[in-house]
Amino acid sequence: MTIGVALDATGADNQIDGSVRLAHEAATAGLRSAWFGQTFGADSPQLAAIVGREVPALQVGTSAIPVFGRHPLLVSSQAQTAQAATHGRYHLGLALGTKLLTEAGFGIPHERPIARLREFLTALRQLTETGTADFHGELLTATTPIPARVPGAEAGVPLLVAAMGPQALRASGELADGILPYLAGPRALGEHIVPAVTAAAEATGRPAPRIVALVHGVVTDEVDRVRDKAAEQLAFYEQFPSYARVIGLSGGRRAVDVAVIGDERKVTAEVQRYRDAGATEVVFSGTDLAGEADRLRTWALLGELAG
């Protein structure tokens, strides 16, 4: 099983330099991958390209670019550039986005997200695999009057989706290479998410999907204090039905209930639970919750488990 971390250097004086420094530390600790979220700030594929080129020991990925407010031609260009820059170590994550951020940020309606995801994946697959597209859907058109291939990215780009609901899982199993579930505990993963996406892939003759489980957690002795801090940070996600649903399926009431916070024994046991539930990769986020010392302690343990 690959074990990685989500890197967040937004508190650094220079986010790019800070991300590279953190990536070097992650590689030294024995971690295998570094992932970057997409916000209205730094461009995640560019950040992954820079970090992946500077730290060749790591796989790098985006988790995840919303399909609203973007176009497959532009995302393909970003992804292929990152793939060429890292010599095949880039992984692209897509997301449905949320009504709140889509409509408040872009001023466009968040309508028919599953249909948009399907069309986006179909057009994007053509572009990343062949450098051409001739796609005319209900919501999107993507054609290539001039070539869209980036030399050096001929191997294509793995396409993953931050999918957790039934329709998104079906679309991901049929059209993507895997999923990036977040705040989905082992119970939700093993009983609902993995069976659904695997069945969809099998029905269309696709290979078994990758299950990259994003886990919010840290190794610490100050469990109560860190749990309270995590509860504040994660409360944002509780307003969205998709997250609320998967937290409930995981046996929790609040997002913090699926966070992994404790000593080395506790975290090791939880990583094993994710493995048993079908995760092919585990990526830890929030490892800076308890401060620098516990972040390094967490990365040391995860590096051992990755080895």
Rank of each mutant, 00 (worst) to 15 (best):
P66I: 05
R125G: 05
A29E: 07
T98M: 14
T268I: 07
R112H: 13
R206C: 07
L74V: 10
V51T: 01
E111N: 12
G278E: 06
I16P: 05
V150C: 13
R187E: 05
F120D: 07
A244W: 02
I193S: 06
G173E: 03
L234G: 04
A49C: 12
G248L: 11
L249I: 10
V219C: 10
L92P: 03
H91R: 12
V194L: 14
V212R: 04
V197M: 09
E129I: 02
V150F: 13
L124C: 14
P66Y: 00
V20A: 04
H87F: 12
A200M: 08
T122D: 03
A203R: 13
L140S: 10
R275F: 13
R112N: 15
R273V: 02
G278K: 03
R170C: 04
D257E: 10
S33Y: 06
E222G: 10
V282M: 13
P147R: 07
A26D: 06
D263N: 15
A163W: 01
I3E: 02
L189P: 05
S172V: 07
A201F: 03
D228R: 13
V246I: 10
W35E: 01
Y182R: 07
A300E: 15
R125A: 06
L127H: 00
Y90V: 01
G37V: 09
A95D: 12
G185D: 04
P186M: 05
L289H: 11
A12F: 06
L92N: 06
I50M: 08
H110C: 11
A201G: 11
R187A: 13
G303L: 06
V20D: 00
G61P: 05
P151A: 00
A306M: 14
A82K: 00
R253P: 07
E191M: 03
